[in-house]
């Protein structure tokens, strides 16, 4: 194994060890940040699968995060369902919503699909604001009794939500890795490189797109549920936030490297570093984010991982196939 690949893989293993050991030594603030990191990484991996492989450049990802958030809140607070089961059910509801949304936006392509997905998300946000049981347009906080259902004390709650986010990230990572290693994944990777060429060798482009869209929806919904467990309230502009759950995610994937497994991981780390160190600069922090993303695209359209790939002679997380002989 080449030294640069070995180094990269050791860094990845160190990252996993950090995530497993973190609850033992991190402060509550550190736990909260790392939980948020894992949730955003799941969102980034999912957007990357859609935009980077299946050419579904959606700007409406926040719709499914919001649906997950509201579904979780509804099952837990309104129906009294167990909080962990509510997270799973939030994923199911998100999947169910994905079917009609897909039917609508898959009639469109490229930029029209992007705008269409955004319109659908904004419409769902406005619809959520009409739900009086969820506090209407101003939203609703979670009653303390329900907050205690996923942790009697604050440290317990932080730890439980942390492990839930860790489990979701592990599930998203391993299942998406398996998907990309499978027959379908080989077709998706071919689509990423040349869509018309992929169709010509028999890749069913329509089926691949449908599969990807339905694949990401439950993960987005469950991430929305975990984010709600941290924020302890639902409100249309926050739960369906285009800035937090779509714009930042696009930034993460673009600077990390779209169409690669490593890109979203690198992008999420860079995003958190920028946000934590430059947050005090107020609006300048957003301007710097924009300038960095434009700069990275101009230098290397495949993002930071594309730049690193010039020196690293292989993938850190291999999804490709090698000949047997």
């Amino acid at each position: 194994m080449k030294p640069t690949i070995l180094l990269g893989r050791l860094a990845l293993i160190a990252g996993v060890i950090f995530l497993i050991a973190a609850p033992a030594f991190l402060s509550l603030r550190g736990m909260q940040l790392t939980t948020e990191f894992m949730s955003l990484l799941v969102l980034a991996m999912m957007w990357n699968l859609l935009a980077g492989y299946a050419d579904i450049v959606t700007v409406g990802q926040h719709a499914f995060v919001g649906i997950g958030a509201y579904a979780f809140f509804g099952f837990l607070v309104l129906l009294g369902v167990d909080p962990y089961l509510s997270v799973l059910l939030a994923g199911v509801v998100s999947l169910i919503f994905a079917i009609p949304v897909m039917g609508l936006i898959f009639r469109l392509r490229a930029g029209y699909l992007a705008v269409g997905s955004w319109v659908v998300a904004e419409t769902l946000m406005l619809a959520a604001g009409k739900l009086s049981a969820f506090g209407g347009g101003s939203g609703k906080s979670m009653p303390v009794s329900f907050v205690k259902s996923f942790g009697a004390s604050t440290p317990d709650r932080y730890a439980n939500v942390y492990w839930l986010a860790f489990a979701l990230l592990a599930a998203a990572f391993l299942s998406t890795w398996y998907l990309l290693r499978s027959r379908i994944g080989v077709g998706l990777t071919a689509m990423r490189d040349d869509e018309e060429g992929a169709g010509a060798i028999g890749v069913n482009l329509r089926r691949a797109r449908v599969l990807c869209f339905l694949w990401v929806a439950p993960f987005l919904g469950m991430a929305g549920a975990i984010i709600t467990m941290q924020k302890l309230r639902v409100a249309p502009p926050a739960s369906f936030s285009i800035l937090d759950w779509t714009v930042y995610i696009i930034f993460i994937v673009v600077i990390g490297g779209v169409g690669s497994f490593e890109g979203p991981i690198i992008g999420t780390i860079v995003f958190f570093l920028i946000r934590e160190f430059l947050n005090d600069l107020g609006v300048w922090h957003l301007i710097i984010l924009g300038v960095i993303s434009i700069g990275v695209i101009l230098v290397e359209p495949k993002g930071i991982w594309g730049l690193l790939r010039r020196f690293v002679p292989g993938d850190l997380i291999p999804v490709g196939h090698k000949p047997r002989r």
Binding site: R183, V186, G187, T189, A190, R192, D193, D194, E196, G197, A198, A200, I201, G202, V203, N204, G259, G320, H321, K322, P323
Partner: peptide, 27 residues
């Protein structure tokens, strides 16, 4: 099956994977 006048390789996949994809899907 067809070839293109201007080749359409899957540039970031290996030569082996390009052909593997055809066997898995078209074949």
């Amino acid at each position: 099956a067809r070839t293109y006048q201007v080749p359409k390789p899957f540039t970031n996949m290996s030569v082996f994977e390009n052909v593997l994809a055809a066997g898995l899907h078209g074949g």
